Computed example of a mutant assay.
Amino acid sequence: MCHPALRRALIAAQHLRDLARLRRVRDRIDREYARPLNVEELARAAGMAPGRLSRQFRLAYDASPYAYLMVRRTERAMALLRRGDLGVPEVRRAVGCASSPGVFGERFTELVGMDPDTYLLRAATAPGELPWRVTRRGPVPSGPVSSRNEEATATEPQLA
């Protein structure tokens, strides 16, 4: 057995390495939100097991990697809708949600408080009344992990 102080130091060092890995995962999601991403790929790139990545990410950022990805996609969609030159289907494709229009609409509504079509309409008529960021937190998406990974495997053109 190692000395308790040495053990604490080793645990602290591992914690710092994990935090650095989690920051890289978060930064990748921020950069590549429109690409198909899944936990297995993110975990492999971070050198972590998928379950460990999910647990640690949730502890660090108060959301699963999938929920964090959906917030990023929703915020980008909000910006594109406010711009006004794209319709909802084009925006959905641009943020990486072309293969799951129902999921996109549900999550957008949960996070923004209105559906994307209403948001687009209000952007044209009352832009000052619109939220610019996701300010409310919807429920964490439920269901089997495989359904989240199926969304992530769709191949879509890179728009942004």
Rank of each mutant, 00 (worst) to 15 (best):
M1D: 12
C2Q: 15
C2A: 15
A5D: 14
L6M: 15
L6N: 15
R7I: 09
R7T: 13
R8S: 15
R8A: 15
A9T: 13
L10G: 11
I11G: 00
H15N: 09
L16Q: 11
L16T: 04
L16H: 06
D18K: 06
L19Q: 15
R23D: 14
R24C: 06
D27M: 07
I29M: 11
I29F: 05
I29G: 08
I29C: 08
E32Q: 11
E32V: 03
Y33M: 06
R35N: 02
R35H: 05
P36M: 00
P36L: 01
E40L: 01
E40C: 00
L42T: 04
A43N: 11
A45W: 05
A46L: 12
A46Y: 13
M48W: 14
P50N: 13
G51A: 12
R52P: 00
L53D: 06
R55N: 07
L59I: 07
L59C: 04
Y61L: 10
D62G: 11
A63P: 04
S64G: 03
P65C: 08
Y68S: 07
Y68W: 10
Y68L: 08
V71F: 02
V71Y: 01
R72Q: 14
R72D: 03
R76I: 08
A77E: 01
A77W: 01
M78T: 13
M78C: 13
A79L: 14
L81W: 01
R82C: 09
G84C: 05
L86E: 07
L86G: 02
V88K: 06
P89M: 09
P89N: 11
V91K: 03
R92V: 08
R92L: 06
A94D: 04
A94E: 06
V95I: 15
G96W: 03
G96A: 05
G96L: 05
C97W: 03
A98Y: 01
S99K: 01
F104M: 14
G105P: 00
E106I: 08
R107S: 07
R107P: 00
E110H: 13
L111V: 03
M114E: 14
D115P: 15
D115Q: 13
P116F: 02
P116C: 02
T118I: 11
Y119D: 07
Y119Q: 07
R122Q: 12
R122S: 04
A123C: 02
A126E: 15
P131I: 07
P131Q: 05
W132G: 05
R133Y: 00
R133T: 02
R133F: 01
V134C: 09
P139H: 14
V140S: 14
P141G: 10
S142T: 15
S146T: 09
S147D: 07
N149S: 04
E150F: 00
E151C: 01
A152M: 01
A152V: 01
A152N: 02
T153W: 10
T153G: 04
T153S: 12
A154E: 09
E156T: 05
L159M: 00
L159E: 01
L159K: 00
